[in-house]
Write a protein that binds this DNA or RNA. Structure first.
Lengths: 219, 219
DNA sequence: CATAAAAGTGAGTGATCACTCATTTTCAAT
DNA sequence: ATTGAAAATGAGTGATCACTCACTTTTATG
């Protein structure tokens, strides 16, 4: 009954065609991620990327047809990885463990994504920054979210609603409210946490966020 | 006891030094806002702005020293206007009307900002897009939010907490949770509302958001 | 070791960039 | 109507852009 994934998703999730073919290609990747995150895609020059990667400018264009091709080969896998836990096998680890309470599910989700976002801040920033300007990226993300994730979450939400453990709102609304509460936590955490003199109490903020969502979505 | 505002804030809020000196300057403003929002600041060229404004390229640099100066003269007033209701006189209209319930306050806040954001989507987009790349803008915003808004909200939150109408969390946490719930509503609304075939039920979503925040922040 | 393919190079290319400036046009005050 | 300053112009400038290509170096394979 479940529709199979698009080919480009399959590829990204199992094989790893993204894996650098060469040491220099790997350095180009790293340099591009750094510089795109620092100055934005449009303000980054291929010459600067080449310089930071310790590579001739021509080498970039051996591996990537255009500058935009370089961006896409960074962003497309990044989007998939950002949402990977909600897809396929990894999804089962987090979501189909038959949580009987909503807060267990929430804690699992938050814990799961916090670690990833901490380690992939620059990738996340690039995705968010460039998404509004590249309709093809928007379509890819929309496909991931609406075709793959939406149904999976809906099943769980409906199950919890049937058991009287969750407010009776459209699943879309529940996802929106939960996602943005978590997003706010993750965003402030990643901005304030590393700052000196910041009074961010992570344990308190995380628990407050979970309690907030749970109480807000109680039946 | 209240510290007075920075000079540049005062100026922006009462006098209007932003007002175009000339018809052509006004057209440059409009064209720049359009194009910056469409392609992002770095990917926009002054020649294209001039073309869309129906003006010679040199005319832009009569009125604005540099391209970045043009951006700042758009973004700085935009930030102030975005937060204006929380400052000075306008602030009183919304917040110091001595709301005795939290949901009245929330409804007032949401109603107040919805209209503005609907009419100023492009300005909002430019601010959000460019903020990460311009530390001077970040400092301006930080000043507005932390020096001016924070204290005002804290007073109201503490008052409601004293009356047992609000959960006992740090006011910062309460603001964060409320703000991101509203942001999610506003964002989805502005993305989905105008789309054909979208099943966005605005009244339901708005009420769900308000109820969500209220229940989540109940004592 | 031989050899061909793949990886890497960097000077070169036309296009476009933000910005300048000598000149012309507009226009308000007399 | 005269005039002087401000507004507007657009051809021109050097810098930088993404990208190419003839060429050299590295690597994999028999």
């Amino acid at each position: 009954m479940t529709k199979s994934l698009e080919p480009w998703m399959e590829e990204l999730l199992q094989g790893d065609p993204t894996a650098p073919r060469t040491a220099k290609q790997a350095r180009i990747f790293e340099a591009a991620i750094e510089i795109f995150a620092e100055k934005g895609y449009a303000a980054s020059s291929t010459s600067e990327i080449a310089q930071r990667a310790g590579v001739a400018e021509g080498t970039i264009f051996r591996h990537f047809k255009t500058k935009k091709d370089l961006l896409l080969s960074i962003v497309t896998p990044a989007m998939v990885k950002l949402l990977a836990p909600f897809l396929l096998r990894e999804f089962k680890d987090v979501l189909s463990r038959d949580y009987d309470s909503f807060d267990q599910l929430l804690r699992a989700l938050i814990d799961n994504r916090i670690t990833f976002l901490q380690q992939n801040r620059r990738l996340f920033k690039i995705v968010v920054q460039e998404l509004p300007f590249h309709p093809d990226l928007q379509k890819q993300l929309q496909q991931l979210v609406f075709n793959e994730m939406k149904g999976r979450f809906e099943r769980i939400i409906h199950k919890l609603q049937g058991e009287g453990k969750l407010i009776d709102l459209p699943s879309f609304t529940i996802m929106r409210l939960s996602a943005f509460s978590i997003l706010g936590y993750v965003l402030f955490r990643s901005i304030l946490e590393p700052q000196a003199g910041s009074d961010w109490d992570d344990a308190l903020e995380r628990e407050a966020t979970i309690q907030f969502i749970m109480k807000g979505l109680a039946p």
